[in-house]
């Protein structure tokens, strides 16, 4: 019988990863507000630098989490991202096509008039649908493999 002592590896769990990312977001938000108030002439440059640092840190956290995740956990996320993300964006595309053909009317009465705001709305809608699909597919994968 294999009774060798168990080597426990400390892993960054899913909630730990989300917590770290959320905490980092709060710190960066606070720093960004301080730069806005006291950054003076170089505020824009400082903001860009802060965003680059934040992006690098977020990627590092996600890579650390991914390396610690086992194969079933990874498989669930890959499956969920592909199928859930695709389904989510498919739904948005379908609604967009139906709206364009005037089959349905989903355009809110108060649409942002500024093109930049429209682009941000579109990105938000797409990412939101993809993320929702991802969460549903992720839960479905684990329910199916219980």
């Amino acid at each position: 019988m294999n009774d060798q002592p168990i080597r426990k590896r400390r892993r960054l769990g899913y909630l730990g990863m989300l917590g770290l990312c959320g905490g980092l977001g709060m710190v960066v938000g606070l720093a960004s507000a301080l730069i806005d108030s006291f950054g003076g002439a170089v505020a824009d440059e400082l903001q860009i630098g802060l965003m680059v640092l934040c992006s690098v840190a977020l990627i590092w956290i996600c890579v650390a989490w991914w390396r610690g995740a086992d194969e079933a956990v990874r498989e669930a996320h890959k499956w969920a991202w592909y199928w859930g993300g695709s389904a989510g964006i498919g739904v948005v595309m379908g609604l967009l096509i139906l709206t364009t053909w005037n089959v349905i009317d989903l355009v809110p009465s108060e649409m942002p008039g500024d093109p930049a705001d429209l682009i941000v709305t579109g990105i938000g809608l797409t990412l939101g649908a993809q993320f929702t699909g991802y969460l549903v597919a992720w839960a479905f994968w684990w329910l199916r493999h219980r």
Binding site: R7, D70, A72, E75, W142, H145, R146
Partner: peptide, 18 residues
């Protein structure tokens, strides 16, 4: 712990669904 995977993965393996 012995396999270095999560408990959920062991459960999925045992049920034969993964």
């Amino acid at each position: 712990d012995r396999l270095g995977v999560s408990r959920q993965t062991v459960n999925a393996l045992e049920t034969g669904r993964y």
